[in-house]
Structures are given as C-alpha cells and as structure tokens.
Design a protein around this nucleic acid. Structure first.
Lengths: 142, 142
DNA sequence: ATTCAGCTTGACGTTCACGTAAACGGTAAA
DNA sequence: TTTACCGTTTACGTGAACGTCAAGCTGAAT
C-alpha cells in the first residue's frame, strides 16, 4: 500500500505554499485524490511535483511544464501525436542546451568578477599579519 | 571614434522590441545618449544589453541584473561595499551552479523521453518500403 | 509645404505565477 | 463545548516584464 501525503507535508518537504499546490492543480498539473474535501497526494503526485519544480527552476512556464508532463503520460496516441510530441521535446532540448551555454558563460564571468573583487580587497588590506614565535598574529582592531 | 547604434539597429540585432529597450532604460539598466530627442547607443550600451539578455535567459530578474551591472561599475567603493558585492556575486554563482545541475538533469530526461518516443514510432511503422527496379516505393495511402 | 518614416513620451492593458484575505467545514484535544 | 488546527473555496490583489495604443515631434524626401 503506497504512501500518501497531506498538503502540509508536501509543502514543507518541497518548500512551496499550499496556494502553489492548488494553483498547479487549477492549471491541471496535479490532480490529487480527495478524502472528503481534503486533498491527498500520491507518490506519483509527489514525483510530478518534483518535475514541476525543476522545470520551474530552469525557466519553463507552467504551460510548458504541463505539455511535457502530458507528453510523458500520452501512451495512448497515434503516430501523428507522437511525432508532434517528439518535436516538442526536441524544441525544449535545444532551448535547454542553449541555456546551458548561457549558464556556463555567466558562471565564468561571475567568477572573474569575484576574483577581481578579491584582488582589490587584497590590495586594500593594510597591515599584514605579524609572525611572533611561529604564530600568526592579526593587528588589534582599533 | 567608436561606433554608435540607433534603437532600430539594436532591436534588430538583438531580437528585442524598442519598448523593451526603453523599459530597460526606465529601470536604469541602460542610459544611452541623446541626439536631440532620439536615443543613440554606444558600444558600451550594446555590451550591457547583451549581458542583460543573457541574464534574462538564465532567469535573473531585471533587478538582479541591475545589481550585477552596478557591481561591475562600482570601481569606486570602499571595502564594505566591495565585500558586500562579493557576497552578492557568490550568491548568484551558487544559484547558477545549482541551476546548471537542474539543466543537465532536465536535458538527460528529455533525451530519454525522445528515444522512448522514437522507439514507439519505430514499432508502429508498419509496411516497409518496397523496392521496384532499384526505386524505393512507399505503399499508397488508402 | 506636405508627407512620411522613425522616433519620442505618456499611460493604460495583459500575462504569469502566485499572494492574501474572507468565510467556512472537519476533527481532536482540553 | 470551546479552542485549536488543518483544510477548503472564492475572489480580488500584486509584481515583473513588457504590449499596445494615442498623440505628438523631427528631419529628410517629394
């Protein structure tokens, strides 16, 4: 008997608000069962949520994420649908690969910026530590 | 005498609208010169714009991009400002590195999805082409 | 002088992804 | 029973990043 999750559990584990989960449900990205009125999330729901959040972090819109999730579900589709799905996937893929380049470039540049700052900080660092009997002694803060 | 650019040139080259450029100006990310009323962009403006667009592609908000641009400009700052800047840079850096992981995972998963689709397409491909006198002949669509 | 293309400044509109407040239901402990 | 939580729906609000008019200036060509 597979585990289930309350909305609170999921929000705490994933770091989102309940509003967010309901919003994803409104958008058709999640569809938890109901016990009475309350939502009860399955492991599958949880897995989908993780995909959603990752998709969000890499900049997909909820609509795009929805498409992708649908594609994974669409096991019952004809050749036309399938190759349309493939096209969508490939689109996302190339977009992501471009983004990967952007990220790497940004990372490189930020690193340059950081070492530049470090150098300027090093310059401006006035009295060097004094060595006394083998110990490094910082000058007293005035 | 360094080159300059009209707003149209820049929009065409960068694939953005003039509205977008003006918006970036409103937000303090760009500040082109004026010849009379018209904006005239320098190479520096162009370079900044490229940074802005890349920042946008990797998911930074305009405010964050503004901070970063400011940091690059801030050559006239004390130690306090500098180490604050460094902190900001490092924050962005770790965020980007996390995002890089997300991207790689997403790419891997999309690739899986694609090959899965390809397999299903391969299965469903029914009558193989018939060879007639050296020509490949597809079966007639009913 | 007029027309036109290209630029300008407002300023209201739109989409996305939720935030937030109001009002109410279920249950379990005090 | 009252209090305390946790959950629900409904619905208006918000911030970011522009889009989309409307109305007007401006220099070059006809």
């Amino acid at each position: 008997m597979s585990r289930t999750f309350s909305i609170r559990q999921l929000t705490k584990e994933m770091g989102v608000t309940s509003r967010t989960l309901r919003h994803y449900e409104d958008e058709g990205l999640l569809s938890p069962e109901r016990r009475g009125q309350a939502r009860i999330y399955s492991q599958r729901d949880r897995a989908r949520l993780m995909l959603i959040l990752r998709g969000r972090r890499v900049g997909f819109t909820l609509a795009e994420i929805g498409e992708i999730l649908d594609l994974y579900d669409a096991d019952e589709s004809g050749v036309a649908q399938l190759s349309h799905s493939k096209k969508k996937f490939v689109e996302r893929l190339t977009a992501l690969e471009r983004q990967r380049v952007d990220i790497d470039e940004s990372i490189a540049e930020l690193k340059l910026g950081i070492t530049a700052i470090e150098n300027r900080l090093a310059e401006e660092t006035p009295p060097p530590p004094v060595r006394v009997a083998g110990y490094s002694v910082m000058p007293a803060g005035e």
